[in-house]
Simulated scan of single mutants.
Amino acid sequence: MNYDNRDDMIQLTPLWQGERFPNGRPKVADDILRRMARITLEEAWGTLWNHGYTFQFEGDLKIIHPNRVMVGRAVTSVMVPKRPDLHDTLLHYGHGQENRNGFFNQWVIDTLQEDDVVVVDLFDKVHQGTYVGGNLSTAIAAKTKRGGAVIWGGIRDTQQIVGIEGINMYYRGSDPTAIADVTMVGLNTPCRIGKAICLPGDVVLGTPSGVLFIPPHLAELTVVQAEKSQVRDIFGFIRLREDIYTTAQIDSPWTVSIWNDFIGWLGSTEEASDFRQLTWDVELEEAGKAELQGGSGQVRL
C-alpha cells in the first residue's frame, strides 16, 4: 500500500471535474470556500440531503471555538489500534520508502496546505489518543492559515490550543497523555467521523452545531442554493417591515410581480451586493410559465 496515493484519489472522486492538487485531491475553488463560510449548516445540509447524501453530518463533538465557523478542504487520516507487525511494517515503510519523519500524525500535518482541514478517524480514542497538542496545532495554524482539524478522538494541551489564532478544532475529548498504540492505515482515503463519511477534498463546514462534509462536486451548488435562500430572506424581511407584502405572500411561492420587485431590488441595494453573481433565469421562466398556464403566477424554489 502507498500513503496519499494519486490514482486512488482520482478513482474515488470521479464526479469532480475541476482542478486537483498534484496528489490528486480535489481542489474546490477559493471563492467557493469564502462564500461557504457565510452560509448556515441547515442551508448546506438541505442540498446534500436532497441529493441523497444523508450521512455527511456529525454533531457529537467538542469545539475549541464554538462560535467560529471553520471551512476548508479535507485531508483525511484513518488510524487503528496498534498491532505490532502491521505497526512496524507501516512505520518503517513510511520512513524508508516515502521519506516521512516522526510519527504517523506528523506525516499528515506535514502535507497540509492553505485552507486545509485535518479529518481523522481515531476510533474514538481519547486516553493515549491525543492526535494533536500545542505544537502540532501551531503547525496546523501556520500551514492552513484558516483551517483546523476534526478528530474522532482526543487532543491535549487544550489551554494552549484555545489561544492559537486562525484555526478551529472539533474533537471528542481531551487528555494529558500523549498519542500511543495507534497505527495509520490510510492517508487521504475514505474516513468515518461518527455517523458521517468524509473523502479527501471534501469541503469541511464546521459550525456551532457540528461538522458537515460536502462532496466537492456539490460544493458550488450548495453555496448557490444557500445564497439564493439567504438573499430572498433579506428581501422578504425588508418588504415585511415596510408592510408591502403579507407574510403569506412572502412565505408562499412568489408571484411574477414579487419576482420583478426582487430583481429590481437586487440590482440597486447595497445589502444585496454580495449576491449579484447569482442568476434567476430559471425561477423567472417557471413563474412566467405558471402564469401563462392560468395558475397563480407563482413558482416554488
Rank of each mutant, 00 (worst) to 15 (best):
V224M: 10
V224P: 01
V224E: 09
V224T: 07
V224Q: 11
V224G: 07
V224I: 09
Q225A: 05
Q225S: 13
Q225W: 02
A226Q: 10
A226T: 04
A226L: 12
A226S: 14
A226P: 09
E227R: 05
E227N: 14
K228V: 02
K228A: 10
K228P: 02
S229P: 01
S229R: 03
S229Q: 13
Q230H: 03
V231Y: 00
V231T: 03
R232D: 00
R232N: 01
R232A: 12
R232C: 01
R232K: 13
D233L: 13
D233F: 06
D233I: 07
I234R: 02
I234M: 08
I234V: 13
I234T: 02
F235L: 04
G236E: 03
G236P: 05
F237E: 15
F237W: 14
F237S: 05
F237M: 11
I238S: 11
I238R: 11
L240S: 09
R241P: 02
R241L: 11
R241Y: 15
R241V: 05
R241H: 15
E242W: 09
E242V: 02
E242Q: 15
D243P: 04
D243E: 15
D243H: 14
I244M: 09
I244E: 08
Y245R: 06
Y245S: 12
T246C: 10
T246Y: 12
T246H: 04
A248R: 04
A248C: 08
Q249S: 09
Q249W: 03
I250R: 02
I250L: 06
D251Q: 15
D251I: 04
S252C: 02
S252I: 05
P253C: 11
P253Y: 13
P253W: 09
P253S: 05
W254C: 04
W254A: 01
T255F: 07
T255R: 14
T255C: 00
V256D: 03
V256T: 01
S257Q: 10
S257F: 13
S257P: 01
S257D: 13
S257A: 06
I258H: 01
I258N: 00
I258P: 06
I258L: 10
W259C: 02
W259Y: 08
W259Q: 08
W259R: 05
N260R: 15
N260M: 13
N260Q: 11
N260F: 09
D261P: 03
D261M: 01
D261N: 14
F262Q: 03
F262V: 00
I263M: 15
I263C: 08
I263R: 09
